[in-house]
């Protein structure tokens, strides 16, 4: 435990130094609507705790988690299909890559037009941003199992379905967790972006509202909450990962 705390010490030092630097610059500039002090932001989070934590955080997090869930299901499905059927890989892979050249930010207002101010326009943005890294990582994970291992299992007389479950799937598990950890912040960004464009609740929406009131600290408050949420969810996934994947160091 002691070692763990000490191991994080450099990161703490860097973080706190940066905050102090920020505080210093903000004091010099002295214009809270442009650059609020970190302490002002902390105070603002406390003052706004009620709307922040009871209305807007749950709204954004539900969008994030629904989006993530859809992305994971879709990503796993696509990755597995592409791995099993070469035809599917040739038909889908280029299309999936191409979807990433579409600037989601630019077309997101359309989603609001299509799906309204409710939750689903944000979920769509979140899914569009996250499903790509998830699909590609898992697909690579499935592909990365060694051909030699596959052949050895074949000589044992194993069916290709059994090889999939006993070799490919466990082999892709680390990639799967990496993909999810990578996708969580993206998903939150997607949700917040969707809310920024048009919503009735959510941290992105809240931040925008504070902007119109020239409340600098109020703009930053939900951003800080978003960041903390992302870190918490990533920490939870990491804990689950440690339980399932104890052998990652080896590859």
């Amino acid at each position: 435990m002691k070692k763990k705390i000490f191991g994080h010490l450099p990161a703490w030092i860097t973080g706190i130094s940066l905050l102090l630097l920020w505080q210093l610059i903000a004091v010099i500039i002295d214009a809270a609507y442009i650059l609020p002090l970190p302490t002002q932001i902390a105070v603002r989070i406390w003052e706004l705790r009620d709307p922040l934590f009871t209305v807007h955080t749950p709204a954004t997090m539900s969008v994030t988690l629904i989006g993530l869930l859809i992305s994971i299901v879709l990503g796993v499905l696509l990755a597995v299909v592409m791995d099993r059927y070469e035809f599917a890989e040739r038909a889908l892979y280029p299309v999936i890559v191409t979807t990433q050249t579409v600037p989601v930010t630019a077309i997101a207002p359309l989603f609001v037009l299509w799906l309204g101010y409710g939750i689903w326009s944000k979920v769509l943005v979140s899914v569009l941003i996250t499903f790509f890294p998830i699909t590609i990582s898992i697909h690579d994970g499935l592909k990365s199992s060694k051909r030699e291992n596959e052949e050895l299992m074949k000589t044992f007389g194993m069916s290709s379905l059994a090889i999939f479950f006993k070799l490919k799937l466990p082999n892709a598990l680390p990639s799967f967790f990496s993909a999810i950890k990578m996708a969580i912040p993206l998903s939150i960004i997607g949700a917040a972006m969707g809310e920024w464009l048009g919503a009735q609740s959510g941290l992105g929406y809240f931040s925008k509202r504070m902007m119109t009131q020239l409340d600098g600290a109020g703009v930053f408050a939900p951003v800080v909450v978003l960041a903390v949420c992302a870190m918490l969810v990533v920490a939870v996934i990491s804990a689950i990962e440690r339980k399932f994947v104890k052998w990652r160091k080896e590859i």
Binding site: L152, F156, M158
Partner: peptide, 14 residues
Amino acid sequence: HGYAAFMPQKDLLL
């Protein structure tokens, strides 16, 4: 498959 036991060069343990 499965009538001859094959041992590869690398151990290939999972």
